[in-house]
Write a protein that binds this DNA or RNA. Structure first.
Length: 508
RNA sequence: GGUCUGUUCGUCUAUCGGUUCAGGACCUUACUCUUUCGAAGUAAGAAGAUGGGUUCGAUUCCCAUACAGACUACCA
């Protein structure tokens, strides 16, 4: 029997949570649930200069909205905390120093200016970005070139320094990716990545390995953009003596924008669709990014469309509930290639979910979405309205436009639509039909329709030509569900009143 | 520049070497149905990047080319 599955999502609280991030969480979550394991949320806040206040809470809120909440996290707790890297700071240094004493890492004292100078000096057309690696480290200021005594002196003097991994020259490294199979590299290709920064914080490279080990992570999913740094992590697992404990890795394909490049905030503003799960405002940069939630997406639709962007279960099914996804999910059906995000299809998913969602739940979503419109309405009435209009709404924001006339009489009537064909016969018809409706015993759509049609026949008028005027009277415009159903929902009194108001307007 | 990864209709994808027009969905168009607008239904449109192999047989396996993307920070 294998170890219990433990997967983790490790966002950096430096900004919003974009589509790719949510999809990574989702796959983590689905995989954990599928295998009865734990889903852990770890906050990677080692870069204090980029840390954005509120971002951690934002991430938690997004996950809550999507109902993919972690089992262990900085708020839920667990056996392997703390789950914030800033709170684990003390533990990283000893691992870095262990590597130094083993000869797998070294102290480097180069100042930012010196590094900058190195990059410009060694820059050439063949090598536009020279790397601090086996070819260059001999010429830099580090414990390998300085010698033991000078290094110790600098260290004792408190000289700012970092610890870098010493990448071996020309050794093959490789691993088996859950999605891509065998992936091979050569150690010469990677530079001597900084493991511990001058402020004592670890970089991602050190932290991810140490934390994954200490938290007993069994499977690690991350974006394809990390593939190139895998050799560094591989070596770290090996050098720290934890090779046997190394998790299985899956590098998820990227989500691309309509232009085929990695999806970014830029795409959102350029093409007019959201990129983040929820609205996010970076106060420091005064930068606002729209969210799917506020755009009117249902969380069920949101995770559905993300799950299927790069994964399928081999069947033609497209609409999945979260439970169905857990059942069907499997890593071997995750696509290798990046997937372009198509907002049209995203809207289609939402539409399908609106149709599929029970009226009662939909009403609740609407109240949450636009309380100013729905919060003080009668729940039963809202459900009737929602049942009538849901088929014609793609986003939650469409509901008000489609249903406002259920809550108040139309402010303006599109009389231009009927005036050309309006005449006294029709005016008389509505007078009579109004009187008949007022005394109608059972106020139902079928009865209203029957009364309407009988009266039309009596008056020798075509029903079709009367329906549009009736619609304009009740709705104000040429849209909405069936007129008789509308009349039945808004009630006898309101129907009568709207006919009267409209007849007055048409008489002028 | 180097390294890594990828490539089936415009987009998301099915096909785990072998029947059938390479299937489904989004999208677009036409028609039908609602004598409103959605919706719905029907039909049509549209693909294996290129060139070599391997094989009785390749979209599927291998190689090359092309194209695309990612990475190349004391950011993650």
């Amino acid at each position: 029997m294998s170890k219990p599955v433990r997967v983790r999502f490790a966002p950096s609280p430096t900004g919003g949570l974009h589509l790719g991030g949510v999809r990574t969480v989702l796959y983590n979550y689905l995989f954990a649930r599928k295998h009865g394991g734990k889903f852990i949320l770890r906050i990677e806040d080692t870069d204090q200069s980029r840390f954005v206040p509120g971002a951690e809470q934002y991430i938690l809120d997004c996950l809550k909205w999507c109902s993919i909440e972690p089992d262990e996290s900085s708020v839920h707790g667990g056996d392997y905390g703390p789950y914030r890297q800033s709170e684990r700071k003390a533990s990283y240094r000893r691992y870095a120093e262990q590597l130094v004493s083993q000869g797998h890492a070294y102290y480097a004292f180069d100042t930012p200016e010196e590094l900058e100078a190195m990059r410009t000096n060694f820059k050439s057309t063949e090598n536009p970005s020279p790397q601090y690696g086996h070819g260059i480290r001999d010429q830099m200021k580090n414990s390998l070139t300085l010698g033991a005594t000078e290094t110790k002196a600098l260290l004792d003097a408190g000289t700012p320094h970092v610890i870098r991994i010493k990448m071996p020259k020309d050794e093959p490294v490789g691993f088996t990716d859950m999605i891509r199979g065998a992936v091979n590299f050569n150690t010469s290709q990677s530079d001597d990545k900084v493991l511990l920064k001058a402020d004592g914080m670890p970089t991602y490279h050190l932290a991810v390995v140490v934390d994954d080990y200490l938290m007993k992570i069994t499977h690690a999913f991350r974006g394809e953009e990390w593939l190139n740094s895998a050799p560094v992590h591989l070596l770290l697992w090996k050098y720290l003596g934890w090779e046997e404990e190394m998790p299985e890795w899956a590098h998820l394909p990227l989500i691309l924008g309509p232009d085929g490049a990695k999806l970014s905030k830029r795409h959102g503003s350029k093409y007019g669709f959201p990129i983040f799960a929820m609205n996010w405002t970076d106060m420091a940069k005064n930068d606002f990014t729209e969210g799917f939630k506020e755009r009117g997406f249902l969380p069920e639709a949101f995770i559905n469309l993300l799950a299927v962007l790069g994964w399928n279960d081999g069947t033609p099914q497209e609409i999945y509930s979260k439970e169905e996804m857990v059942q069907a999910f499997s890593m071997d059906h995750v696509h290798k290639g990046g997937a372009q995000f198509d907002f049209e299809k995203a809207k289609w998913y939402n539409h399908e979910w609106i149709k599929k969602t029970e009226n009662q739940i939909l009403v609740q979503r609407l109240i949450d979405f636009e309380p100013e419109h729905y919060a003080n309405q009668d729940a039963g009435y809202l459900q009737q309205v929602v049942a009538l209009v849901k088929d014609r709404c793609t986003l939650l924001s469409d509901f008000w436009q489609q249903s406002a006339f259920f809550f108040h009489a139309p402010e303006t009537l599109d009389t231009d639509a009927i005036k050309p064909k309006w005449n006294d016969d029709k005016a008389t018809f509505f007078d009579i039909v109004k009187e008949k409706l007022v005394v109608l015993e059972h106020w139902t759509a079928t009865n209203i329709e029957a009364t309407f049609k009988e009266t039309a026949t009596e008056k020798d008028l075509k029903v079709g030509e009367l329906q549009l005027p009736f619609r304009i009277m009740l709705v104000g415009g040429k849209f909405g569900p069936g007129v008789f159903e509308i009349a039945s929902v808004i009630g006898k009194k309101e129907t009568e009143q709207r006919i009267i108001t409209a007849l007055e307007q048409l008489a002028n």
